[in-house]
Design a protein around this nucleic acid. Structure first.
Lengths: 159, 159
DNA sequence: TGATAATAAGTGTATATACACTTAATTAAA
DNA sequence: TTTAATTAAGTGTATATACACTTATTATCA
């Protein structure tokens, strides 16, 4: 089900040998597809916490790094800075984080609030459920390798 | 740079042994991060074609499968049907695909237009550039394994 | 020191994503 | 065959994503 399937035989078009191969071999397509699938799984489990997948990651990162500037957080999240700004807006409106101007007044420093910490207390066990499901399904070894290769891909893509 | 980094030593909170581990081991976070990074790479290369990554995949899938129903296409893309509806809207407005009511009048059948095919003719060589970059960076063997593991993860997540 | 370059962040816009709900059409059941 | 259940698709809403551009502040240099 997870590839493009031909109906007819006119596959040698656009000057490449085998058109349908792209559906199977495209790194971007596959990773995006995997992101959609895995996100759905985690978000279903995280639902009782009221957090989306990105919000959970963002709160965890802020928890560990905060107070932290927008730029630094964006780098760690491998997320465009302007995307992060929009995501932080939502979390701040909900009172899960706060931000204030930094010592360098161009910077904005983000911190987790008590409410944010409380939401994480609810969310972390849910996260563990989802994570265990994936670990059990793929096997710890294989998942570990997969995550390592993805890290490599991320480094590679950022050059 | 790609993990949560602690400042202090208060890491044993929220009832889990090591908070920062989540930033390294979370399958969802890592895959989403990789999707952002790899998408950026492909979209920079695809830019001259005027196509985003998702649009390219969608046109290729339609090219290979069309005429195809929205539901079927959504399943192959591992994409929510309503997401697909919105994505198709944009491509149809640009004249790259057409859709018409199917034999079963609940269904909508999507096909690539000549203009869509022409855009793909421009895009495919660009795609190959991006793909080669990734292949060269990770190595064919490793990329192949990675894509296989991601397929496994996708299957697993859809249960 | 005053002009200029560099840096951090925000805004406008467009696309991507999916849930909850609705509508239209077909199929199955009474 | 009329009704009920099922199925395919669309809409309202909210979040996620990032590029191009702008603004405010700091750093550099002539």
């Amino acid at each position: 089900m997870h590839g493009f399937h031909m109906k007819s035989d006119d596959n040698n078009i656009l000057g490449i040998t085998n058109c349908r191969e792209i559906g199977r071999t495209c790194a971007c397509f596959k990773v995006r597809k995997a992101a959609r699938a895995i996100t759905k799984l985690y978000e279903e489990v995280l639902r009782p916490s009221g957090l989306r997948a990105t919000q959970f990651s963002l709160l965890m990162a802020t928890r560990v790094m905060g107070p932290v500037t927008v730029l630094k957080l964006a780098q760690v999240m491998v997320m465009d800075r302007t995307t992060l700004t929009r995501n932080l807006e939502i979390l701040e409106k909900r009172g899960l984080i706060t931000s204030k101007t930094g010592e360098d007044r161009r910077e904005r420093e983000v911190s987790l609030t008590t409410a944010g910490m409380e939401v994480l207390t609810t969310a972390v066990p849910l996260w563990e459920e989802a994570q265990n499901q994936v670990e059990k399904g793929l096997g710890e070894e294989r998942l570990h390798n997969l995550l390592g290769d993805l890290s490599e891909m991320i480094s590679l893509a950022r050059k």
